[in-house]
Design a binder for these strands. Structure first.
Lengths: 339, 339
DNA sequence: TTATAAATTGACAGCGCTGTCATTTTTGAA
DNA sequence: TTCAAAAATGACAGCGCTGTCAATTTATAA
């Protein structure tokens, strides 16, 4: 049968309150006592009952992940990362798929927060990029950690985990420049996404730093989809200024660009280099495999969850804005520019 | 502030026990009383506290979804379906990604089941296809619903939701035959997956029913990946018996086959028809878009969860094996056979 | 109408923990 | 060594609900 705190207390020869203290890492427990208790805990395979904790205590033992993202790979990665942190710390994960554009979204989240005691929310785009939304959530006295694109946190509403798309984008662009490319096309994602803005910024800055003129004809508005990559590549390759490389704002776009190039009889990477972004499974399912930037989503998510858990335990570090820079992954879709 | 059962009882002028009865749909509550209570519930936006329920009662209010599937789209679909049922019924979802091949998998699940009171488990492949695993779970006195491929449940260990890949596969094959195709290639997924077996069976049966010989040279062993589709299509199109159509065991394989065909200068669908399976987002991200079979995963998952919830409430119907047949979706990757 | 069974409702304990506060033990300065 | 202050530990109530069983109301038959 499942062991309770009582069993542990008896076996360790202490009161249940002391066991409780040990389980919650509270101070004011002598080391030998702590060890006695931990021993009993192990031998009985004891795990605190979450329901009882929630009912009796005032602390929260769950964190929520709300998502509205068509990219299943991204969502699963984030979820697995958060889950991994939760499991290690005895927390629970509430997942809540929803529509960020629905009218009732605020009530929906408010209701959820009010009905389940939760320590905090992990917010990814688009939610993390909606300051008003974040403010409302914070009013409910729940912690928030935002994962978003940028060099620095845009405000100090909450701790942020910044994904430095700007820097990563510069690396990719620099990689292309190093290969001798000068006319580099850019197929953008939706411009309302910070990631698009940041990636474009990185592209431009890298060009500037290498004294290459930015030509608007090479920058195509698009969205994060295969189809958009197809269209974008066509437009670029049939335009008056033909690039020798294409920077795609994500892997799906790149896959589309790759596909369109094939259709146009352009061989990759010999005649045209193409890069992706995100290192999603997509980038390995193309041929040739995509040069891209790896974004360690599970790690990022785990970090976000750990931060929330630390805050719940009031042991959050002071310096709470962290940053990840996606790293360049060179595969087979890029090569020396044709002379 | 959040309303408790006490508030509702007071407002409705009954005892908390009566409110409890109403909330649990128990009999022995007079209709007017029930209405009074429901009114108070609504006006106070009352929702029973899960923690308290778990602690006080013997019934379970959560169901678990364990998964080990590289296909993020599939997992998200299933998860969303289960979640939707849970939300409607006031249940909680525990998700548990894990490795079905790990040694400790049984202990891992056992531990999870013992430490959280759960009503039941939703099992998808590969778990649903591991009878020994299912037996062990059932020994823990948790309900199980399996989602798997086949016409009929393989045993009566648990309720099953059967996905009739066999029938769907026949529809696809028949579609190709109706278009005049006689030499139809088949690129299989891993043969240890029931879905592969069933899809191959449907393919063969459709051929037989149309008096078309089954030629082993047209059946390629593969796995559920883009790369496998590339290889398979190459092998088929460069083989001695060249098909005019290719049945791919899933959309990823089809995408690979599509890609390989382009490389070989074969135009789709004019020179070669290609079909997918599953109607995943992949099938819309190819060009031309894939003819495939739509598998309503969220619906299936919601059905599975509802069954588990009904069982938890001891109101499960007698006839508990249900069946879904994926429906043919004709898009642009198939056309009349070349004469 | 009355007695009896059946249906409905309520009182109360207790699920496994945490928070509060009282008690005991230890520490350290005088 | 002694005593006050600090540290460590424990006793106990109660979180919001459900299960048990008793009390009350209603329905039914005589």
């Amino acid at each position: 049968m499942k062991a309770t705190i009582n069993d542990v207390a008896k076996q360790a020869g202490v009161s249940i309150k002391t066991v409780s203290r040990v389980m919650n890492n509270e101070p004011s427990v002598r080391q030998p006592t702590r060890e006695k208790v931990m021993e009993a805990v192990k031998s009985l395979n004891y795990k605190p009952n979450l329901a009882a904790r929630n009912l009796a205590g005032t602390k929260a033992y769950s964190i929520a992940f709300i998502y509205d993202n068509p990219n299943a790979y991204y969502v699963i990665d984030m979820q697995n990362g958060i889950l991994s942190a939760c499991k290690k710390q005895g927390f629970e994960l509430l997942i809540h798929p929803c529509n960020s554009k629905s009218d009732g979204i605020l009530d929906e989240i408010t209701n959820m927060v009010k009905h389940s005691r939760i320590a905090g929310l992990v917010l990814t785009p688009p939610f993390s990029e909606m300051p008003e939304f974040v403010k409302h959530i914070l009013d409910l006295e729940v912690d928030v950690v935002r994962i978003m694109s940028g060099d620095n946190a845009p405000d100090n509403l909450s701790p942020c985990i910044m994904v430095n798309d700007h820097q990563a984008s510069m690396s990719i662009t620099q990689h292309l420049i190093d290969l001798g490319h000068k006319n580099i096309g850019f197929i953008a994602g939706q411009s309302e996404h910070m990631s698009t803005v940041e990636r474009l910024r990185g592209y431009k800055q890298a060009l500037k730093e290498n004294n290459i003129d930015i030509d608007k004809r090479l920058i195509i508005d698009g969205e994060y989809s295969f189809e958009s990559g197809v269209q974008g590549a066509k437009q670029l390759m049939e335009g008056e200024l033909r690039p020798t490389a294409i920077f795609s704002c994500n892997d799906e776009i790149a896959a589309g660009a790759l596909f369109a190039s094939r259709l146009m009889g352009i061989s990759i990477p010999e005649q045209l280099s193409i890069t992706g972004f995100e290192n999603s499974p997509f980038s390995r399912q193309t041929w040739p495999r995509l040069t891209t930037a790896n974004q360690p989503n599970p790690k990022i998510a785990e970090g976000a969850a750990n931060l929330l858990i630390a805050k719940a335990r009031k042991q959050a570090p002071d310096n709470i804005t962290t940053q990840y820079t996606p790293q360049l992954v060179v595969r087979d879709s890029t090569s020396q520019a044709v002379q």
